[in-house]
């Protein structure tokens, strides 16, 4: 039996804009297995980033429930949610969201500071992680001194700081050129394969289809369809031939 790590039940999210109510998610039901690489696809405004925020406990659904590891997220206390974000999930964002006042090393150690890990241990781990993402020689550089691809690598190292079981990546390649984007995708895929991390990625980068186990197409706040990798490979071929 599949080991379900994320489950959403009729998740609805509404945004109020003055007197208008925008329904970004209109009842989303998905199940994600442990160790899977899932891509949430859809045009901008389809609700994929909103769903991403719901799964990562970055925002609260208006209606419905999100279960992670069998726990109903809406029943968690503030402290539990903070611990969840700190230990169980690693976030990667389109715009990197590095703290620009902290060096690469400072960014990677921050989640470990929040987790209460002793200084020596977190320094060693930060060095190891930055080395792993190929930034061993730029550990003390500030984000402003790094290229886009390097910043995203710092973000990946930071996401892995507390050994999360889920990596949430919101358009991680959108601000990068094709080659750098490819490298970042390969790096995330490697983590997924070698360390068994569940990867959930909101994207409309076609390169990401190739490495996904399943693709969830989101349209107008609803799950349009869920495809497996073998179905996708054919379509990538078609796209490539255009």
């Amino acid at each position: 039996m599949a080991d379900i790590v994320v489950k959403t039940e009729d998740v609805v999210k509404e945004y109020r804009m003055g007197s208008n109510v925008l329904r970004a998610l209109d009842g989303i039901n998905i199940e994600i297995n442990r160790g899977e690489y899932i891509s949430l696809m859809g045009p901008s405004g389809s609700g994929k980033s909103t769903l991403f925020n719901m799964i990562g406990a970055l925002d609260r659904p208006t209606e419905g429930r999100v279960y992670i590891d069998g726990q109903n997220m809406s029943q968690l206390s503030q402290r539990q949610i903070a611990a969840f974000r700190c230990h169980r999930v690693g976030y990667i964002f389109q715009s990197y969201n590095l703290l620009h006042v902290r060096s690469a090393h400072g960014n990677v150690t921050l989640p470990m500071i929040f987790a209460g890990i002793p200084e020596k241990e977190r320094d060693e781990k930060a060095e190891k992680l930055l080395d792993m993402v190929g930034l061993g020689d730029r550990i003390y550089h500030l984000p402003d001194e790094l290229s886009g691809g390097q910043r995203q690598r710092v973000a990946i190292a930071r996401a892995l700081a507390n050994d999360p079981s889920i990596i949430l990546a919101d358009e991680p390649t959108a601000n990068l050129d094709t080659i750098t984007g490819r490298e970042i995708i390969d790096l995330i895929k490697r983590l997924n394969k070698e360390q068994g991390v569940t990867v959930i990625s909101a994207t409309h980068d076609l390169k990401m289809l190739d490495v996904s186990d399943r693709i969830v197409d989101i349209r107008d706040g609803l799950v349009e369809r869920i495809r497996n990798r073998d179905e996708i490979e054919i379509e990538v071929g078609e796209v490539g031939g255009e």
Binding site: D69, R79, Q80, A83, F84, H87
Partner: peptide, 18 residues
């Protein structure tokens, strides 16, 4: 990495760290 234990509570940081 396969964490399925109940979600614990986040700790307070020591004042010196802040």
């Amino acid at each position: 990495m396969n964490q399925r234990a109940p979600i614990e509570e986040q700790i307070d940081l020591p004042f010196v760290e802040s």
